[in-house]
Each structure stands twice: as C-alpha cells, then as structure tokens.
Design a binder for these strands. Structure first.
Lengths: 232, 232
DNA sequence: TTTATCCTTTGACTTTAGTCAAAGGGATGA
DNA sequence: TCATCCCTTTGACTAAAGTCAAAGGATAAA
C-alpha cells in the first residue's frame, strides 16, 4: 500500500500526487488486529487518524462500567481530529489526552496517523484543507445531532432508525439485506442499550415479520412496517 | 447598538473595526420576545445567527410530540452555522431547510443574521475566519459528545452532571448558587426527560440535602455529594 | 470429533421513568 | 385584593428497559 490511499480521503481531495506523497511520508501506518486498542482516553494526544482498511469504534466507558459507542469509523474517514482546533494550546504543550477510546473491530485494520504538529503546518499553507475540514466536522455534527435525537426515543424506534439508515448505505446488489459489520454487542452500545434488550427487540421485529436475522445478516422484509416502527 | 457587538464574537475576533462594520452593515438585526420563534425546521435556510443579547434554545419535536433541546445559545455565540459547509450545494440552490427549531427564551433577545451568500464571500478572503470556524465547530462537537455521554445515564446523574457544569460557569460572587436562565420545562427537555421526572429528581436531591431550590435559584449545599451522584 | 471459549438469547425480577389527571403556587393584570 | 393564567409539583398507575443468572449456539483450537 502507498500514498494512493490518501486520494480517497475527502480531507485531502484538493491535493496533487506530490503533496499526498509528502503527507504520506510524514505519517505513520500501523495494522491492528480485531479488538486491539488504537488509543485509550488516558493517552496523550499526538494527532488524528485515518482509517485505510477495516473498521474502528470510538467509545467511552461510563463510571458504572457500561460502554457507549459514539461512532463507527469506516475506510477513508478520519477520527480524533476535532480537538486539533479547540485544544490547540494544550496539544502544543502536550497537556491533552484523547477524549475517548478507539478500538479496531476487524483483523488487518489499517490506520494512518497524522501528527498534529505536521498537520498544523499543512493547514497553514492550505486553505482547501481548512475548508474540507470544516465540511468534515459539519457532517460529524449532523450525525451526532441525529444520534441525540434517536437516543431519546425507545429502543425499538432507535433500532428501526438504525436499520433504515444502514439500508440506505447498503450496496444495491444485495437489496434489502444489511450486513452488520459489527457485533451485536457493539450495536447495542451504539444504540445506547444493552445486549439483552437489543436481542429482545430483534426478536420482536422478527415475530412481527418485519425482519429476519441470520447471524450478522439482517433481511428487511417489511420496509414500510420498519418505517412505521421508526416513527410513531 | 452597533457593530461593536461583533468584537465579542469569537468567529470575528481576528478582524479590524472596518471589516466588522462592513459585516454588520450586511447583516440583519432583529429583536424577539420570549417564546417567539427565530426559525422553524420547515423554513428555507438563508444563513446563520449570532446571539447579541438574551438566550436561545435550539430544539426538535419528535413524532410523538416531545420536545428535545439540543443546546442553549448564549450571547456572542453562533447557531445554525454547521450546515454552511456540508450542505453547500443545497444552500446555494435554496433547497435546504433549517435542521431544527430556534426560539428566543427572553424578552428583548437580540439576534444577528449573517446571510450564507455573504458569508461564503467572507470566508474566501479570510483564512482566520476559517480557522475560528473550525474551533467553534470543534467545541460544539465536544459539547454534543458529552451530551450523548450524559444522556445515556439515568436522570439523577444527568441532572447532577448538569448542575456541576453550571456551577463551573457560574460567577464567583454567587458561590454555590446557580441561577437557571431557563424554565424547568426547558431544562427537562435538555436533559432528555419530562417536567414531572425532573421535578421528582430535584425533590429527591433536596430531601438528601444536596441542593435547595427556590424558583430558578439552585443552591448547591453538598458539592461532593453532587459529584458522587454524578458518578456512581 | 471433541472441548473450550465467546457471543447471544431467554427467563424472572427490579428499577426507572413516562402517562394521565389533578392540585398548588407564583406572577400579572383588572 | 381578587381572579386568571401558566408553570410546577404530586399521586397513582403503566410501560420500558436494566440486572442477574443460566442456557444455547457458533466458532476455533486440540
């Protein structure tokens, strides 16, 4: 693998080959196994990351021990980039820690680290990157807003919401089938609930012939019923 | 009131008097009464806003009719600015609507509208604004993240969390006293619950001698007990 | 194939928070 | 001062989701 991966990263889409090569040469690439930690929320912040291959979850552990997934990060997307701008001083003085934990969810998850000091340099020279960054952060804000909106509904609705969202993203060829790239446990933590409740909820949807579940494959039988379950 | 208000807006803090005057002359200023709507989520997006005086709540109404407050916006802060960057095309073609509702919470709430087309111009010429915008969005992301974190705990914990947060912000002179700038109903909606539950929760905290409540004034009696209630 | 491990599901029970209906209480204006 | 309105609190009840304990099932290694 080489710098060509960076071509797909929206943040850098305004740059030419040469610039991408330079960025790549200043970055660190590392491959992780499933379940391996990329960073803990106790580690000093050294920069942000790009997922090249695989899948990553960003999560926190609350004091009562429950895990809460803030988001999943898929290839070509960045994570842990938000502190760059509002924790500028603290990052410079190495007095800032990652605000959450990050774990690889698949074997061979490939992650690129862009160090903050190098990136600040880049930002200085490149207005396009600045604008792309703005759009990236905006999208995350939008996502978090809808996450908040969904989390204050009951679990069946949240699940229906999630399934409909996944359905939009799923490839055309497998129409009506969602391939969960994550474990049921991670899904539960993302929906803000626990394994048992998710399990019961999936069961109920199956009893009502809305979906059918085989392992990590979910077949949407009644899309309109699902839409109904997502609203009122 | 004149353009001097803009000096306090972080987003424009890199600009000189002349530039601020120009921006001000291109903006629209309007004063709202308590309860008056600034925009609905059914209105076409025309730009973002700055709170000059007063207090604003940003909220959504879910299908079951419940209100969910995403955030409160205080003087010198902006709102509805995130879509500028990820909905660029749609905004240009006037095919985009405000993603939530905004309501003034006090009489004489003064709001400045910065139209998107004008702002795009500004952004072109001003890298500082771009960077400030990044830091503003980052801060909002951080805030939403902690909102999500708190919302997936039980109501007493959320309330304790909120109170401790307010305590940090409260002026030094009134040590241990929080002056709620919002109604209990708005607080409930912000905490993701309903009026009755909030009321019971406040009562319990009072019974446990953690706080005492007089109207919109909350006196923190046991800060350490409150901290304990916020964790486990 | 068998065993061990991990992930997921079930069941019984408890806790939490929402619903509905009604009563207080404070502020405002007649 | 009284009446009205709106915000807030209470009480009784219901529904939702979490806890704990244990059983199934799938997967991978022996």
């Amino acid at each position: 693998m080489d710098s060509s991966i960076l071509k797909n990263v929206n943040l850098f889409s305004g740059l030419n080959e040469e610039e991408l090569n330079k960025i790549y040469s200043h970055s660190n690439v590392k491959t992780y196994d499933k379940g391996e930690m990329i960073f803990f929320d106790t580690e000093p912040y050294i920069g942000f990351y790009i997922v090249a291959e695989g899948n990553v979850k960003i999560f926190k552990i609350s004091k009562d021990g429950r895990e809460h997934v803030l988001l999943f990060v898929h290839p070509f997307n960045t994570f842990a980039e938000a502190p760059l701008f509002d924790q500028f001083e603290k990052i410079r003085s190495e007095d800032f820690y990652y605000p959450a934990n990050a774990m690889a969810l698949e074997d061979k998850t490939k992650i690129i680290l862009i160090r903050s000091d190098y990136f600040y340099n880049l930002l200085e020279k490149n207005k396009t990157i600045c604008l792309k960054m703005l759009s990236g952060l905006s999208r995350k804000l939008k996502h978090l807003n809808s996450h908040i909106e969904s989390i204050s509904q009951d679990v069946p609705r949240r699940l229906a919401w999630f399934l409909l969202d996944e359905l939009k993203k799923s490839p055309q060829k497998e129409k009506g089938i969602i391939e969960l790239g994550i474990s049921k446990h991670d899904l539960a933590a993302y929906l803000g609930t626990i394994d048992e409740t998710l399990s019961r909820c999936l069961k109920k949807f199956q009893e009502n012939k809305i979906i059918s579940v085989k392992g990590k494959k979910i077949h949407i039988i009644g899309k309109s019923a699902l839409r109904q379950a997502a609203s009122v």
